[in-house]
Amino acid sequence: MDPHVLKKLNLERASRRAAIVLTDLGDGRDRLIGEGDEVAGDLGEALASRFRSGKSGIIAHGERELFANVHLPSPRLAIIGAVHICQALAPMARLAGFDVRIIDPRTAFATPERFAGFDLAADWPEDALKSRPLDAYTALAAITHDPKIDDFAISAALEAGCFYVGALGSRKTHAKRVDRLTEAGLSGEQIGRIDAPIGLDIGAASPGEIAVAILAKVVEALRSRGEVGNG
């Protein structure tokens, strides 16, 4: 691999831009192609389709065998609530390959000491999500247990088409939430996408166990919507 290709690739990945490393398996030459770069003909179409699916693989190009290694931006997890569960969920999600962002306006919880090395916003979701909006490559877990903080973020995630939206709380709590969100104008279909009570039903009790249950559902949602990113 050309060292310049590796450097450029790592730069693109750090900037959350999609890129393909195209390697000629015959002579070993490689080049980097960014999403939106002009590539003519059949090869251009094959590459565009790879960008869409996120799947790496071999492209037959005339006599040559080209390997397209697709690097899509890694999925994000926005955690609303810098609570005890978040202290377990944030590092676990990072290990699983997610870019983690933590949002909580309560400065008692959202301290750099509790979340060293993490992207932490001690702001209301209304404000924090303005600088970095949610998108289809983002999952959202609302775990403050406080409707004043959670509800806006949940609505925003459903509107943005986040691939996963989960909300902490019992069935009773969720029923009240459904009423509020309906009143706020969200459709039954949108509300039906909320994973609540949050997480895979494994009888999780401790914060660490609940984090495992949440992360399991996030990964399931990511992988069932098609490959996004390839580690």
Binding site: M1, L25, K55, G57, N69, V70, E227, N230, G231
Partner: peptide, 18 residues
Amino acid sequence: AIATVVETWGSAPRPAGS
């Protein structure tokens, strides 16, 4: 050196691109 999985058949443990 960089080793890359370029093709898989059946139940391979890591996908192409790893």
